[in-house]
Design a protein around this nucleic acid. Structure first.
Length: 305
DNA sequence: AACGGAGCCAACCGCGAAGTC
DNA sequence: TGACTTCGCGGTTGGCTCCGT
């Protein structure tokens, strides 16, 4: 039944690699190529777990890897990609030849994140903290009135907003929706009219299906169709439609994306039923209009989705 | 010189997806 | 089809180095 265990984890060496061990990996790959990593320790004469060997190769020994510091161009690329797709390091690393996901992740955590925070920019949303606090204040102020938003804050629902007690916490984390085994960011980059972000959850009890997409306005060489189309939350039925949109999935140079849910039936709270033809943003706008009528003072000013 | 804190990064951990039997 | 595995990923940690006191 199944494959044999990769190794006896209690009986393998761990910790830093020696030059001798590196040489064994290199020699093995040179003669056999990359294949079944579980067999590598045995065949290469290493007392290591196959998983550890694979990690050592992919993160350090690969001949195509760069070991120098990140260039300003690479830094800019990471920032742009992170703004769009978040902490999907392996996807970001694929756009940076010679860099691994571990490299990118470490560089982000040790340099870029702090750099952004020093500039007063939230590293998750890539928006100024001041703007986020303003927007969050508005959202929290109307949460009890808007039935749609109320759905996300009720404790008995699968959705739950994170605590706002920690002032050092990223604002974006407070918009993270926890949905059983899955969580999705309501990326704060998603709030203007230049593009559309479709979101939802296929595993939600109230949504039968959903889709996630990013529509930008300007086209850079980067295309994120692969991320969107590869997203498990994106129903196959909508793939063709997604691929037909030539703008879909190209990276926006601006931070303007709007949130929208389309397609299948989805009910979130009283009155939030939307038909297949009724878009999510239409539903929100309808509530917005309703709120404007009922509480014109509270919702005065800019409030774009 | 000794110490402690911060920064950095290689390596590990745990999970979900995919593969195998 | 189900049990069990490997693979790949993102998050976290441990230890080394640097720097200020």
């Amino acid at each position: 039944m199944g494959r044999p265990p990769c190794c006896d984890k209690s009986n393998v060496k761990r910790g830093p690699w020696t030059d001798e061990e590196d040489a064994k990996i290199l020699a093995y790959v040179a003669s056999h190529g990359i294949g079944n990593w579980t067999l590598v320790p045995q065949k290469a004469g290493l007392n290591r777990c196959g998983k550890s060997c694979r990690l050592r190769w992919t993160n350090y020994l690969r001949p195509d890897l760069k070991h120098d510091t990140f260039t300003p161009e690479e830094e800019e690329c990471i920032l742009e990609l992170h703004k769009t797709i978040g902490s999907r390091w392996s996807l970001i690393a694929k756009r940076l030849p010679g860099r691994t996901d571990n490299d990118v992740k470490n560089y982000w955590n040790t340099k870029l994140k702090k750099k952004l925070m020093k500039m007063g920019i939230d590293p998750v949303t890539h928006k100024p903290f001041s703007q986020l606090y303003t927007e969050y204040g508005k959202i929290s102020g109307i949460t009890n009135m808007n039935p749609f938003l109320h759905t996300f804050t009720r404790k008995e629902e699968p959705y739950d907003l994170m605590s706002r007690n920690d002032p050092t916490d990223s604002m974006a984390s407070r918009f993270q929706v926890v949905n059983n085994n899955q969580s999705h960011y309501y990326n704060e980059a998603s709030s203007s009219s230049n593009g559309v972000m479709l979101f939802g959850s296929a595993s939600s009890g109230s949504c039968e299906s959903s889709q996630v997409g990013i529509v930008p306005c300007s086209s850079s060489p980067f295309e994120c169709n692969e991320y969107i189309l590869g997203d498990p939350l994106f129903p196959n039925d909508n793939m063709d439609q997604m691929q037909e949109c030539k703008y879909m999935g190209t990276l926006s140079n601006s931070d303007s994306i709007t949130v929208q849910e389309t397609g299948t039936s989805c009910s979130r709270g009283a009155g939030a039923t939307s038909s297949a033809a009724e878009s999510f943003v239409d539903t929100i706008l309808a509530y917005d209009d309703e709120m404007q009528l009922q509480f014109p003072n509270n919702l005065d000013g800019i409030y774009d989705y």
